[in-house]
Design a protein around this nucleic acid. Structure first.
Length: 424
RNA sequence: GUGGGUGUAGCUCAGUUGGUUAGAGCGUCUGGUUGUGGCCCAGAAGGUCGUGGGUUCAAAUCCCAUCACUCACCCCA
């Protein structure tokens, strides 16, 4: 029989590394709490229609990357490829705005996209992110950026770059698209095949094409920043003012465009040079039109999403991952069947007292049990053989200093509380 | 979907111009102590050399195909 292997683009997080995930998650929870964001969880799958309408049918994600299938009831189902659309769906479905006009929520979730894997890109991957729903204030955009940066800062990550841009709103983006298309149409045949495809559905994406030739052609294209409506212009100015007031460094990248259709006004991206070619660790922006596209009332909102695997990758490159999980406090080493029975009772008692305790289950020799205790970095070993049983005590070996002493069964409680008095 | 790279022990890797029973380090197990860890020493277990075919007296080694992994394009977290 050949072994079954994991699906391409998926990852196992093994016991020896999971503590780093837990630490990251703890920082996310605590930072979100400090910024007054509350966690929200949504199903792993949704109706395909949600993403088709929310993200946009012409985007890469929807047109070729989704894990979609028909269930036994002939419903079109998709494993969620991103979190913003499900969050807004739930927000609308439960009328959360009736609870409070501004909802601030966050999530940690697995997402699924059927792309070709490479460094920092998986088919099942994890993101954390936050969404503030119900306000169009630019200060809120700044808060989301601060929040993302705060998580990274608390983790000790350095050297991140923040880029911002504005993509306008319906009032100015649609007219601008027409102006842009008028410029592009006569020279379109000089653009690459991808760009020609983008022309009808998403001409803005032509502006951040990476091909040298397209970039050259783009230099003479009309700029959105010259065609912003007064509302968007003010919003972008306000964003930069508040970022400045918050002491945040950024650069304005006029070609920064997001691949999802729902963005309006603010877009931003945080990148790290400690990643591979997939260098974005966080992306976000404002999406004031999404709620309406999903059948809800006009609702301003802003959010970000950050890659957990990419964050861990950066932490690894910066030496921020720890090797050592917690230590075992007590290892009970019984010798023989009689001792094994008593050991079972004591392991139960020690655990009930709150000490991290384990024992041998393989009937191993003392030497092997000591090796095991050492591997577990146990702080002490309770040896229990015939002599100890007769005397009703343990031979307790303190592993860090190598000393050994007899502690009678009745004194174990006080002995342990004294030994561990400096640990809480 | 398209390109490049790599597939030998659990892990990281050697393996000569094709030549007998395919090696090392780490890890695992056992022993060096009637019942004592780490360091050290000795030993053991563990391999369809990714898979299939071809060339050859002989293939881990050469050729073809295929699969997997990986990096990159694209796009994104």
């Amino acid at each position: 029989m050949n072994k079954i292997k994991r699906i391409k683009g998926t990852q196992d997080v093994l016991p020896g590394e999971v503590h780093n995930w837990q630490k990251l998650e703890a920082v996310i929870h605590s930072t979100m709490s400090i910024f007054n964001y509350r966690e929200m969880r949504t199903p792993v799958f949704e109706s395909t229609e949600l993403f088709a309408r929310g993200i946009g049918r012409l985007t890469d994600i929807v047109s070729k990357e989704m894990y979609s299938f028909e269930d036994r009831g002939k419903k079109q189902i998709t494993l969620k490829p991103e979190m913003t659309a499900p969050i807004i769906r739930a927000y609308l479905e439960h009328n959360l705005k009736t609870q409070a006009p501004l909802q601030k929520v966050y999530y940690i979730s697995s997402l699924f996209r059927q792309e070709n894997p490479q460094a920092g890109r998986l088919r099942q991957f994890n993101q954390f992110g936050a969404e503030a729903i119900g306000a169009d204030a630019a200060e809120l955009d700044t808060e989301l950026i601060q929040l993302a940066l705060a998580v990274f800062a608390k983790l000790g990550i350095e050297g991140l770059k923040l880029e911002i841009n504005t993509v306008g709103d319906t009032e100015c983006r649609e007219p601008y698209k027409i102006i842009l298309k008028e410029y592009l149409r006569p020279v379109l045949d000089q653009y690459c095949e991808d760009c020609r495809k983008r022309f009808d559905g998403n001409p803005l994406r032509i502006l951040d094409c990476k091909k040298e030739n397209c970039r050259t052609l783009n230099r003479n294209a009309p700029k959105l920043s010259d065609h912003l409506c007064s509302g968007c212009d003010e919003h972008f100015t306000k964003l930069q003012d508040t970022l400045r007031a918050g002491g945040i460094a950024w650069s304005h990248n006029p070609y920064l465009v997001r691949g999802l259709d729902y963005y309006t006004r603010t877009v931003f991206e945080i990148t790290s040079s400690d990643l591979g070619s997939q260098n974005a660790i966080c992306g976000g922006g404002r999406y004031d039109l999404l709620a309406e596209q999903l059948g809800g009332p006009p609702t301003a909102a802003v959010g970000f999403a950050a890659g957990i695997e990419r964050t861990l990758m950066v932490m690894g490159r910066q030496g921020l991952l720890s090797e050592q999980p917690g230590r075992l406090q007590v290892f009970v080493a019984p010798l023989g069947d009689a001792a094994a029975a008593v050991a079972t009772e004591w392991v139960t008692k020690l655990r009930a007292m709150g000490y991290r305790t384990d024992r041998d289950y393989l009937g191993r020799s003392v030497k092997a049990q000591m090796r095991e205790a050492n591997r577990q970095r146990a702080q002490m070993v309770f040896l229990l053989g015939d002599e100890e049983l007769k005397q009703k005590n343990f031979s307790v070996k303190e592993m860090d200093n190598g000393t050994q002493k007899s502690v009678s069964f009745s004194e174990i409680g006080p002995y342990l509380s004294d030994f561990f008095k400096h640990e809480k």
